[in-house]
C-alpha cells in the first residue's frame, strides 16, 4: 500500500512507518507532498459520502502534520507542512458557544494554518481591533444564537467601512447559518458544516499562496 492509502485508511501506525521508509529511500519533497494531499483528499471524499466522520477528518490532518514534521526533522530542505495564511476566529458577542469553533480551530491547525482565537462573546470592537493588528487572510465568526445576528451585521459593515475586507475574506459558521434566511452583507461564505468551512479556508489559502511543492 502507498502512503496515501494508509492516510485514507486512517491507519496512524502504518502511515508513520511508511513515511520513515519513504524518507530513508530519499523520496522527493514534491512526491511526499503529493501523496499526503492525495490521502487527505480521499478522506475528504469519504467524509462527503458519509463513509467517515469528523473525528477522521481531524485525524487525517494530524497524520499529515506528523508526516511533514517527520520529513522536516530528517531533512531541513523539506518545508514544514504549511498552508500559509492566518485565520482570525471568534464567537460573536452575546453568544458563548465554542464547540464548533474549537473543532474548526483544531482542524485548521492540523492543516498548518495559523489561527488566532479570540474566544467567545467577542464584541465587535474586539474583532475590529485584532483584524487591524493581525491582518488575517480570513475572519471566521461563529454564531449559534439568532439574537446575536445584529452584531454580525454590525461587524460585517464595520469591517467593510474600515476597508478591512479588501484583502480578507469574512466567513460565518454555526447554527444560525441554517436558521431560515439570514441576510448579512459582505459575507463571503457561510456553512454549519465543519468540513465545508475547512475546505473553504484551505482552498482559498492554497490558491492565495500557491504553495511551492
Amino acid at each position: 500500500m502507498d502512503l496515501k492509502d494508509y492516510i485514507a485508511e486512517l491507519d496512524v501506525k502504518n502511515a508513520e512507518s511508511k513515511t520513515e521508509e519513504l524518507i530513508s529511500q530519499g523520496i522527493t519533497k514534491g512526491d511526499l507532498y503529493e501523496q499526503v494531499m492525495k490521502g487527505l483528499q480521499i478522506v475528504g471524499e469519504k467524509y462527503a459520502k458519509q463513509e467517515c466522520y469528523l473525528a477522521d477528518l481531524i485525524v487525517s490532518g494530524m497524520i499529515a502534520k506528523d508526516i511533514f514534521s517527520a520529513a522536516h526533522a530528517c531533512d531541513n530542505n523539506v518545508p514544514e507542512f504549511r498552508v500559509q495564511g492566518k485565520v482570525l476566529i471568534g464567537t460573536i458577542y452575546e453568544d458563548i458557544h465554542d464547540l464548533g469553533k474549537d473543532l474548526l480551530i483544531d482542524a485548521l491547525k492540523n492543516y498548518g494554518i495559523e489561527v488566532i482565537n479570540l474566544g467567545v462573546d467577542v464584541p465587535v470592537a474586539e474583532f475590529i481591533k485584532h483584524a487591524q493588528i493581525e491582518k488575517p487572510d480570513i475572519i471566521a465568526v461563529s454564531c449559534v444564537m439568532a439574537n446575536s445576528i445584529p452584531h454580525i451585521k454590525e461587524l460585517a459593515q464595520s469591517l467593510k467601512d474600515k476597508k478591512l475586507l479588501d484583502n480578507t475574506k469574512l466567513i460565518l459558521g454555526g447554527a444560525v447559518t441554517h436558521s431560515g434566511h439570514i441576510d448579512i452583507p459582505h459575507i463571503d461564505f457561510m456553512s454549519d458544516d465543519l468540513f465545508l468551512g475547512l475546505q473553504y479556508c484551505q482552498n482559498y489559502l492554497t490558491e492565495r499562496y500557491k504553495l511551492e511543492k
Binding site: 485508511e9 486512517l10 491507519d11 467517515c52 466522520y53 469528523l54 485525524v59 464547540l99
Partner: peptide, 13 residues
C-alpha cells in the same frame, strides 16, 4: 481510543 470511521464527535454533540 480513537477508532477510524466512527461518528464519535457527532454522537458526543
Amino acid at each position: 481510543e480513537y477508532l477510524p470511521n466512527q461518528p464519535v464527535i457527532e454522537d458526543m454533540l
